[in-house]
């Protein structure tokens, strides 16, 4: 599958540069403005959070952000509208939607995939749909050229890894620690070994996330991973400092990631 994700990771690889993946929550604050500003602040890939009432795999920061977004009237349809608005002016930065199954299932796998494709979405991370349950969703996404991105974790052994990377595309998201989002990363040496293992098994780029907050951490991981994901810290910065606060943090983090291998 060739889409913006493949192109973007090929570019990064050509420059021997790790990518920076910025996560933000759709509907929390002026999220359209933040979304539009992220590429200029250094985001190579954008993960756009789809708010859900019961985000079981997320920590306090992202859960609170989702509830603020829902209180402000955010919906899945409006999230897709924000992606579409972004895509009118940015043709190259990949957007990956991240969230939970129920709102997507409620819209209908096919209807969602079609609408997401039309909005210029490139990938989907659906946290609570493991490979065992994703056939219908994956079939729908395939039709519209959207990559189903899977998560590998420290509990994923080699046998399990084969199942996880089968039928996946775009990149693999390596969750650096057992725990919820924002919980803190595992030791860098362990992460580096895991990244190599996932790269080998999948033949895909590997992005590392869950708990990266500081430029120093991001830089250390960027020496080994194809990309570094930051979520909770950006969500907090947006809540506390608005679009300026969030983009300032993204600039510092992306700069640390982009220069890590020099």
């Amino acid at each position: 599958m060739t889409n913006r994700l493949t192109t973007r990771f090929a570019e990064l690889s050509a420059y021997n540069r790790a990518g920076f993946v910025a996560y933000m929550m759709a509907g929390d604050g002026d999220s359209q403005a933040l979304l539009n500003a992220l590429p200029a602040a250094g985001a190579d890939v954008i993960e756009l959070g789809m708010p859900f009432t019961d985000p079981m795999a997320d920590g306090a920061a992202i859960q609170a952000s989702a509830l603020r977004a829902l209180d402000a009237g955010m919906t899945l349809k409006k999230t897709l509208d924000q992606a579409a608005t972004f895509r009118k002016t940015d043709k190259s930065t990949p957007i990956v939607l991240m969230g939970y199954a129920n709102p997507i299932h409620h819209m209908g796998w096919d209807k969602f995939a079609k609408a997401a494709g039309k909005a210029g979405v490139d990938g989907l991370i659906c946290v609570d749909v493991p490979p065992e349950e994703d056939e219908d969703l994956r079939t729908a996404l395939d039709k519209h050229g959207i990559a189903l991105i899977r998560l590998a974790t420290p509990t994923t052994d080699d046998k399990r890894l084969a199942t996880v990377v089968a039928n996946t595309a775009g990149f693999v998201y390596y969750v650096s620690t057992t725990g919820v989002t924002g919980a803190g990363t595992g030791a860098v040496t362990e992460v580096s070994e895991a990244v190599a293992r996932v790269q080998k098994a999948s033949g895909l780029p590997v992005a590392v996330g869950f708990g990266v907050r500081e430029p120093e951490q991001a830089s250390a991981i960027a020496k080994h991973a194809d990309a570094v994901v930051v979520g909770s810290a950006i969500v907090d910065a947006m809540h506390e400092g608005g679009v300026t606060g969030a983009t300032d943090l993204v600039k510092r983090l992306s700069s640390a990631v982009h220069t890590a291998r020099r």
């Binding site: 609570d128 065992e132 349950e133 994923t156 725990g179």
Partner: peptide, 20 residues
């Protein structure tokens, strides 16, 4: 075998929990 009762049930959990 997939833990389905007709169309219901299944295993909709985060990957971290799947091995468990």
């Amino acid at each position: 075998k997939k833990g389905r009762f007709g169309d219901y049930g299944g295993r909709f959990v985060a990957e971290t929990l799947m091995p468990n």
